[in-house]
Nucleic acid binder design. Structure first.
Length: 577
RNA sequence: GCUCCCGUAGUUCAACGGAUAGAAUAUCUCCCUCCGAAGGAGGUGGUACAGGUUCAAUUCCUGUCGGGAGCACCA
């Protein structure tokens, strides 16, 4: 089923008009005009509006109003069958008013919409790296934002037809593990760790940093143990393998609880360790390496960046070294068109350096993109620190979220069994948490505030879930829906159809800025409009049979869009809550 | 000191360089003998400051002020 959405339709009309104009004036530079086509709420500025005339005006060096007149004349002459009229307003905007029956005509199409209708023609292969927890440490609230965002971005690309590789870059290497090994050898007990792996290992790590304050020798001991690890020391390698195994169990438990899709690749940093010597050799051959204070660095002056440290004085590697190796590995192995790194904003410099080195090594330029997001800060507005042990774990947040929704469910759904109530509380709690992480842009720092985070009113998952539950309840009561008469629908209903047909807009915006908040906004607006409709208009109880069927079709279409939206956001669709 | 991110209603956030800057929350009213009141209707309230770029600036540039993060052997 091929569908042309209104935005594409208008866009086509304008492109055609610009082409005709370019032909008329023999000025091909007109073809380079970029313009927007925007969905408009209500009908003040039409159903869709465009600023195309401003771009045309600039190139033709005429006033925008004149350019708008020219475009309008061409489009009108082409007999646009679905457009009732075009108005020029606001100094040169073209406002397109669709015929009322255009929306009615599209009604029975709504419930049949599928991802295919939204497929991006590019369909590229893309690696998305996210989550990336550290072995032997609990996932904390920051990982939660990262994981939920990365998972949803991956869903989005998958939805529009990309080949997506979900990549979990596990932190299982580096000096920190030397430190952990020191701590374990000094103070650790096997039984204790077996019983409570992550917690006990974190305790050891925190203790290490406490003791470090009055025993500066520890720092060196940690570096030595890591050095041994890099040189293949058996005892240390076994310890690390054990830590990794226990950690993965815990991570996977959390992913499952959160409804995070399975990763395609889960590769620890340690994996790249054997690839390092060749990498250093290659860097050296390209004359990129330089010795400085006993360490090896790559100068990045040409990029106006500080030098990147590749090898420590004692010959062991660094985060950056392994990142370069990993990048090369990914390109060689999978040949993606792009690698999205969903990593915190505080690592901006690191990624600028990484991509600069990739360039120097002749890797396809701009392959990497850092999808940065702001930190989740503590209640005091300061950064959480693992070393000091003042973190809020992902598990704590999840439990709180579930508890909070449990209270509401107990109050609102006394009719359900305890089992059903628990089930719903868990689903709603997790949905709320995920939605909260996605509803804002990436670059606003989230100051941790349990109250706000777990609020179940307003622009939140429960609002969406509730609306969906009401509508699907109607649909299940209705049973089979008849043919209906779409032309009996009125303004409010037609506007809803228009809104449903604007789903593509939300997807495009979300993809453009690699953020799900545009989609969240759209879904919230759709639900709000639909709720308003629901409150003001009888649907199931409509006396006119044909109109009833049409209204039901509309509700079905709304549900369809909500289902697809939820799927992308990684939120569970619940037929009842 | 240098670099990056961010300053929008009391609060939390939207607005590809576009038209009258939108929501949520809080607060104050109203609505369940009709399909789920976790809902709906209405009121109040805002672009840190100073310049510049242009048909048009919350958005871009420069500077000031304020908050956060990063800057060589951590990741």
């Amino acid at each position: 089923m091929k569908v042309v959405f209104p935005r594409q339709y208008v866009s086509g009309l304008i492109s055609g008009a610009i082409q005709a104009l370019a032909h008329q004036t023999k000025d091909p530079s007109l073809l380079r005009v970029v313009f927007d086509v925007d969905y408009k709420e209500g009908d003040k500025f039409g159903d869709y509006a465009s600023n195309a005339a401003f771009g045309v005006a600039k190139i033709m060096e005429i006033p925008p109003l004149q350019a708008a007149e020219k475009l309008k004349a061409i489009i009108e002459a082409e007999i646009a069958e679905n457009i009732e009229r075009i108005e020029i307003a606001g100094g040169g905007f073209l406002n397109f008013f669709f015929r009322k029956d255009y929306f009615a005509k599209n009604l029975d199409l709504l419930s049949k919409l599928s991802p295919k209708n939204y497929a991006d023609p590019e369909r590229k292969k893309i690696i998305i790296e996210y989550s990336s927890p550290n072995v032997a440490k609990p996932m904390h609230i920051g990982h939660l934002r990262n994981t939920v965002l990365g998972n949803a971005l991956a869903n989005l690309y998958k939805f529009i037809g990309y080949k997506v590789v979900r990549w979990n870059h596990l932190g299982d290497w580096g000096t920190q593990f030397g430190k952990l090994i020191v701590a374990y050898k000094k103070w650790g007990h096997k039984e204790k760790v077996e019983k409570n792996p992550i917690e006990e290992l974190l305790n050891l790590y925190v203790r290490f940093h406490k003791e470090l304050e009055h025993n500066s020798n520890l720092e060196k001991e940690g570096q030595e143990e890591f050095k041994k690890l890099e040189n293949g020391d058996k005892e240390n390698k076994n310890l690390l393998a054990w830590f990794l195994k226990e950690s993965l169990k815990e991570f996977n438990r959390l992913y499952k609880l959160l409804g995070i899709k399975k990763f395609d690749k889960e590769i620890g940093e340690s994996y790249y360790s054997p690839l390092i010597p060749k990498l250093i050799e290659e860097l050296d051959k390209n004359k990129l390496l330089e010795k400085s204070e006993g360490a090896l660095i790559v100068r990045l002056d040409a990029f106006k960046l500080p030098p990147a440290l590749i090898q420590k004085t004692d010959g062991s590697t660094l985060y950056m070294t392994r990142e370069v190796a990993s990048l090369k590995y990914r390109v060689k192995k999978l040949n993606p068109s792009k690698i999205l790194y969903v990593v915190g904003n505080e690592q901006s410099l690191h990624f600028e350096q990484l991509f600069a080195i990739a360039r120097l090594l002749g890797i396809k330029p701009d392959i990497g993109e850092h999808i940065k997001y702001e930190l989740v800060l503590g209640p005091d507005g300061k950064k959480f620190s693992t070393r000091e042990g003042n973190i809020i774990t992902a598990q704590e947040i999840i439990s709180q979220a579930i508890e909070e929704s449990q209270k509401i469910v107990e109050e609102k759904r006394k009719d359900l069994s305890t089992k059903e109530k628990n089930e719903i509380a868990r689903e709603i709690g997790i949905n709320s948490l995920k939605y909260y992480m996605l509803k804002d842009g990436r670059m606003t720092p989230i100051v941790f505030n349990a109250q706000a985070m777990l609020s179940l009113n307003g622009n939140s998952a429960p609002y969406l879930n509730y609306a969906y539950a009401r509508f699907s309840s109607i649909l299940s009561k209705a049973g089979r829906i008849g043919k209906g008469d779409a032309y009996s629908l009125e303004n409010q209903e037609l506007n809803l159809i228009k809104k449903v047909l604007a789903f593509d807009d939300a997807l495009i915006k979300s993809k453009q800025n690699s953020s799900l908040h545009s989609l969240a906004d759209y879904l919230f607006e759709l639900a709000t409009q639909a709720n308003r409709f629901y409150e003001s208009t009888p649907i199931l109880t409509d006396a006119m049979e044909k109109r009833k069927d049409s209204r039901l079709q509309l509700i079905k279409g709304i549900c369809r869009i909500m289902e697809m939206g939820f799927e992308i956001m990684g939120i569970q669709t619940l037929p009842k809550i």
